[in-house]
Nucleic acid binder design. Structure first.
Lengths: 233, 233
DNA sequence: CTTTAAAAAAATGAATGCAAAATGTTCGGC
DNA sequence: GCCGAACATTTTGCATTCATTTTTTTAAAG
């Protein structure tokens, strides 16, 4: 077995390896490619990742690869054991709990800031997606619901107009991306309805520009999401 | 001029360069040393930083240095221009505003979480430092006041019992460390008194384990702190 | 047959080398 | 004297190489 690390990527297709490297410096493109590669689950959890294999996978030498690994380690996506290489960081239930709470705190902040300066157009867009999500809810279309749900939260963060917040949020979102979708609402119809009601409250508070209130609702909404995710895990 | 980059560090004393590199891998120690080096303001803002100079400064080759630079760039402390080296990232007033708000959001979260699970011992410790701070306030000892103030906020974050939160908070704190102390309360006696009252409210809400309320107070407290910092700038 | 110790192989951490890009300098033209 | 182009120097980006540590293989002893 020459490629024990690669699960789903077709090695015979070089496009998938070289396409996500646009221009700029090799390092930057590689960083994005490697991050996606890891987030998409191409590396098994906790398994040691030899640098050589990744070098061959991305057709680069070890120097830029190691630079990228250091950055990803700083981001918390992988961990670097001294003299023992890198491994994808496994998220314990405790880690997930913590990350969800921090995401909740950041969304609470986003809601508060959004109330201060959201434009009518931005609010209208959120409202539109909200109603679209509601239609998915009525049709019990979980996939569509999820997409809208994600988009709403993303729009709220964007409406906060704070690049530092958006960057921090994106960093955490990347770390829990793999477990995030495990909040299987289909298994828990009550929770789904509850989530929908929470979203109604979110929209309502945002409409009234009630910052503190929206902040509370968003945090608790994430907290409930976390509980649902952990219950189904 | 052989060392145009170094402002205040005495080149003849090698201890300051090599002491902060404990054991472990060279990279990790270097990362800490470099971060401190930058945060302490040894590199002028916006000035281009040749790798060679830093290599000589820390007595290492370019490879680990470049790895460290990539990490620091990911942290937002410096920025890497393609083929043009690194420069210390200048924080615009807008950047500072954003970072303060995110810190406020994280402290708000910390307060909320602390209310959920702070121990009596932890609360007692915060209360103790609070009273110590109050004594500094009465004596108009700004230095002592600041130290206690920092410690209280740090204790609240610690009491949240969330490592991910603490790490995120620490990352942001490092980025604004240089401007944080510019909130010169001595110039604004009213603001100082107001801050002290806010701290009373913080302690009170924490005592009552009033999460949402404490969350609000902490965010607004940081917001006011930011305004004071920007007014004095 | 299991366990352990030594040696071989491989992987990591760091230094050096090399090509490309950027910066600085000099020389020529106006 | 000022501006612009060609050249030299410096610096960056990446590959390669070297040394050390770790892992695996191998073999021998119990």
């Amino acid at each position: 077995m020459s490629e024990p690390l690669l699960n789903s990527v077709d090695e015979r297709d070089p496009a998938s390896a070289e396409a996500p490297r646009p221009a700029g410096s090799l390092h930057e493109g590689l960083l994005v490619a490697l991050r996606d590669f890891i987030v998409e689950g191409n590396l098994a959890d906790g398994v040691r990742v030899p640098e050589r294999a990744l070098c061959e996978r991305f057709n680069i030498s070890r120097t830029p690869l190691r630079e990228a690994l250091k950055v990803l380690a700083a981001e918390g996506l992988i961990e670097l054991l001294p003299n023992r290489g890198a491994r994808v960081r496994e998220l314990s239930p405790e880690d997930v709990r913590e990350l969800f709470d921090v995401m909740g705190g950041l969304e609470a902040l986003a809601g508060r800031l959004a109330c201060e300066q959201i434009s009518e157009a931005e609010f209208a867009e959120i409202e539109r997606v909200h109603h679209e999500m509601y239609r998915f809810y009525l049709r019990r279309d979980m996939h569509g619901y999820f997409r809208c749900n994600q988009e709403i939260h993303q729009l709220i963060v964007a409406a906060a107009g704070n690049a530092a917040l958006a960057a921090t949020y994106a960093g955490l979102a990347g770390r829990i991306r793999r477990v995030r979708y495990s909040a299987n609402l289909a298994k828990d119809r009550d929770r789904w309805g509850e989530a929908m009601r929470e979203h109604e409250a979110i929209l309502d508070a945002l409409r009234r520009r009630a910052g503190s209130e929206l902040s509370d609702i968003l945090f608790l909404h994430l907290r409930n999401k976390r509980k649902a995710a952990q219950a189904s895990a």
